[in-house]
Amino acid sequence: MAARRVTEVAVGDVIGPVTVPVTRATLAAYAEASGDQNPIHQDEDFARSVGLPDVIAHGMWTLGASGSVVADWAGDAGRVVELGTRFTKPVVVPVGGSEIVVEGAVKAVDAGSGRVTVDVTTTCEGEKVLGRCVAVVRLD
């Protein structure tokens, strides 16, 4: 896989939509890899005891999965130089699993520096779960 060239990118280009499945097993694997073992992400009895409807995904899982979609589009994951968001709504993960849908839109292209700014929209069951999610990739 080779990195996309900045000359191939224009404001308004669309990324995705890409559907990413998420199950309890995904969250257990994410908890192990990230070190975030908060039981609200794995134990539905605990999640309900603190007022949540069910197990919820780690916000950082949702950001990470959204970032993966942008990285795949860039063609080289090491090109993602900025990534950020507000966590506005939890992704509820019932025992049968759920999915998120990730879309991007190129907002700005700086041909000189190669910096490409992407607005990312991530939804679950039709509702936005990230606010002001922006990624910047640096292309040649």
């Binding site: 896989m1 994410y30 890899a33 990470g64 990285a71 795949d72």
Partner: peptide, 12 residues
């Protein structure tokens, strides 16, 4: 393991 958990498939 982190890449697999966040659906990152880039071979790098």
């Amino acid at each position: 393991s982190f890449a697999a958990a966040v659906g990152a498939h880039d071979p790098v």
